[in-house]
């Protein structure tokens, strides 16, 4: 197992490398002089020159790339001019908040989505199936930012069950109950789309598995139907559901950008949008590379989970 994990980690290196190249190439598309773009309207000729020297912007592209990569590997993501702070520090701070939000949502959508898919498949064409299918259609069609706004309107403004926005109360203790009450609405809003997608795919994965011969064997053994569904069929269906979960984690992470805007959540997504509007290119670059790298590592964890579930995968 340890060998397998190591192997997967090693295989991530070219992917990480590729990611850095892609980000670098995209950033190289910036029209005009990069130093001016990075410094924005604050640029003075001296500053531009200094930055050019610091970043090696006067050197050829390939050389510049490796300087940039070398700096990042050493933890130097550059300095954000709009915040006057090291990019990595800012990204790490913000990423924690995103992780809480997206992580909660991911757990929610995995559990709810799989459960809904299983129930839907088990009661195919029944009332529960139809209700879930409709809810799923609604869920995958509603823009999460619109849903978030409506949730604020109903549950925060009208019913006053939850705070309107933010991660912590402005006054008062920053404890777990406070976090949960702030987290509930954004986490739910963020989970809805992915729940729908997961439910849909879980349903079809379950239908596929329920036709298999080993399900008939379980029934022939006298296994109660509930256990046939939840123990035999779901376990086998998880083999095709888990990769979907991995993909959906990316969508949750993406959707977090909108939800962070709607709920004023101090996460990395809001940071990126602000940085783009401020044209703080280094901050955008650093944030994108960092989050993408984390996502690659997360997908390795998904692969490992898959190999734990399925003994037929060679580890």
């Amino acid at each position: 197992m340890a060998g397998y994990i190591l192997k997967r980690l090693l295989s991530a290196i070219p992917v990480l490398f590729g990611i850095s190249v892609i980000v670098f190439v995209i950033m190289a598309m910036i029209p005009g002089d990069p130093a001016t773009a990075i410094l924005g309207s604050y640029a003075t000729p001296e500053n531009v020159e200094k930055l050019n020297r610091d970043l090696g912007l006067d050197k050829p592209m390939v050389q510049r790339y490796f300087i940039w990569l070398g700096n990042m590997v050493q933890g130097d993501f550059g300095r954000s001019f709009s915040l006057n702070r090291d990019v990595l520090d800012e990204v790490l701070d913000r990423f924690g908040a995103t992780l809480i939000l997206a992580g909660t949502s991911f757990v929610l959508c995995s559990i709810l989505g799989v459960a809904a898919g299983v129930v839907s498949a088990a009661r195919q064409y029944g009332l529960a199936d139809k209700a879930i299918t409709f809810a799923v259609l609604l869920g995958i069609s509603i823009p999460s930012f619109f849903l978030g706004m409506m949730m604020i309107l109903i549950f925060a403004v009208k019913l006053r069950w939850f705070p309107v926005s933010g991660m912590w109360p402005i006054y008062g203790a920053r404890d777990v109950p406070a976090l949960i009450s702030h987290l509930t609405l954004p986490a739910l809003a963020l989970a809805v789309v992915a729940t729908g997608v997961i439910a849909r795919l879980s349903r079809s994965a379950m239908l596929e598995v329920l036709r298999q011969d080993f399900i008939r064997t379980a029934r022939a053994k006298g296994v109660p139907e509930r256990a046939v569904i939840w123990r035999h069929a779901l376990r086998a269906a998880m083999v095709s559901i888990i990769p979907v979960l991995g993909v959906q984690a990316g969508f949750v992470l993406s959707g977090a950008v909108y939800i962070e805007m709607v709920f004023q959540w101090p996460g990395v997504g809001r940071m990126l949008v602000d940085a783009i509007l401020q044209r703080d290119i280094l901050l955008v670059q650093g944030g994108v590379v960092f989050v993408a790298a984390c996502y690659v590592l997360f997908n390795i964890a998904v692969d490992v989970a898959q190999s734990l579930l399925d003994p037929r995968i060679k580890t």
Binding site: V15, I22, V23, I26, P31, L253, S254, A292
Partner: peptide
């Protein structure tokens, strides 16, 4: 396909944000 795999390794919005960041809103 290697290149495509790399692109798919991004959560899609990061890529979109990076492109918008480069080209401008």
């Amino acid at each position: 396909m290697r290149g495509i795999d790399m692109l798919m390794a991004f959560p899609y919005i990061l890529l979109a944000l990076a492109i918008v960041a480069a080209l401008g809103p």
